[in-house]
Computed example of a mutant assay.
Amino acid sequence: MATQIDPGNVDDWDEPLNTDPMFRSSHVFSTADITVTFDGMTVGNSEDPQAVFDTVDDPNDPEDTKITKEGVTLYPIDSEFGYYVSDFQNAEQKELDGDYAEGWAGDVYDSEGNQLGLVISDSPTDTFKTPAVYGTWLAGLGGNTVKASTEHYVVMQNILSDQRFPGDTEALYPLDDELFIVGGEYDGKSVRGLLAGEYEGITITDTNGDGKVDIKDILAPNETEIDSNIAVSSDYSVTLKDDGKLLYR
């Protein structure tokens, strides 16, 4: 016979087991904690903090600092986390070069001078011109740029045509879904042919381990190149994002 449980003599697992911890830790973030290189160098442990975080206000340069509406002064940052972009060329990884263009940051204090944290402001994302259907931006009204990319085929398709699905024979404007690879190992080969094993000596396998063989196993992640790792048709292009999702342009 099963033993009955005495509700008055059991542990309450919702209660903390240690109500008086022996160790507590807290940290107030400041501009010294800002990481500026891939190997983990911060403003605080840099041999020359001024070289990566320009706190010298130049009155002759109105872009040197920014003032928030609360009155916090933000100073420009130089870091490796950025790209140099040029029209019709691949984006190039940035280096520490004295170009303080990766954003702004400033320390926040209360009325008594106690550090409360920090405020950060990102720099605008640079855009660059690309060949037709390769890019993710379009020209909008008044010369504005409009984001023109999506992670979903159906969103891209609804913008471009009345096609209900790939191969829809009743569409007034059927999309060209015959994608060809641009650049790299499979340059000029069709995605359909690669997946069907039509090219001698080439076998596409489930390289990303998602349980199926598809275009994601052909393309390598690409967020910066305009001449490689892109699948292109006459209507749109496809790239693979760093997070493993497709991006339709």
Rank of each mutant, 00 (worst) to 15 (best):
D243W: 01
E102I: 10
T205E: 03
F180S: 12
E151D: 12
T205I: 08
E47K: 11
T65R: 03
V133T: 10
R164L: 09
K94C: 07
D64H: 09
D39R: 11
L118N: 09
D64Q: 07
S161A: 01
Q4W: 15
D54C: 09
E102Q: 04
K69Y: 15
M1K: 08
Y100N: 03
S123A: 10
W13P: 13
D48P: 05
P76G: 11
Y248H: 05
D168P: 03
G167A: 05
V238C: 06
I120L: 15
E185N: 03
N158K: 06
R192P: 04
G244V: 06
Y84L: 15
N45S: 01
L116W: 09
V155H: 15
T68G: 04
E151C: 13
G40V: 04
K189M: 06
E47G: 13
T55F: 11
V213M: 01
P221V: 02
D11G: 08
F88Q: 09
V85T: 07
L74Y: 05
Y83W: 14
T127A: 08
Q93M: 13
V28W: 08
L96P: 02
A32G: 12
F38N: 12
S233H: 10
Q163N: 12
Y173R: 09
V56K: 01
E223F: 10
L141W: 14
S233G: 11
L246Y: 02
D126K: 14
Y248A: 04
G201E: 05
V36T: 01
F88D: 08
I77D: 11
A2K: 10
G183S: 04
Y236W: 13
Y109S: 06
S161K: 05
K94D: 05
M22S: 14
S46I: 03
P166L: 05
L141Y: 13
E47T: 10
D122E: 13
L179E: 00
T73K: 01
I230T: 07
L195F: 00
Q4T: 09
G209L: 00
W104L: 06
D58F: 02
I230A: 08
A105E: 07
A231Y: 07
N158S: 09
E225G: 06
P131M: 04
S237I: 03
D57F: 15
D206Y: 00
E47Y: 08
I204H: 00
T150E: 14
A32I: 13
P16Q: 05
E102H: 11
N208L: 00
D97Y: 01
D87E: 08
M156D: 06
W13S: 09
N158V: 04
P59E: 07
L160R: 11
L195S: 00
H27L: 08
G167W: 02
F81T: 08
D14Q: 13
G71Q: 05
D11E: 07
F29C: 14
N18S: 11
F38A: 14
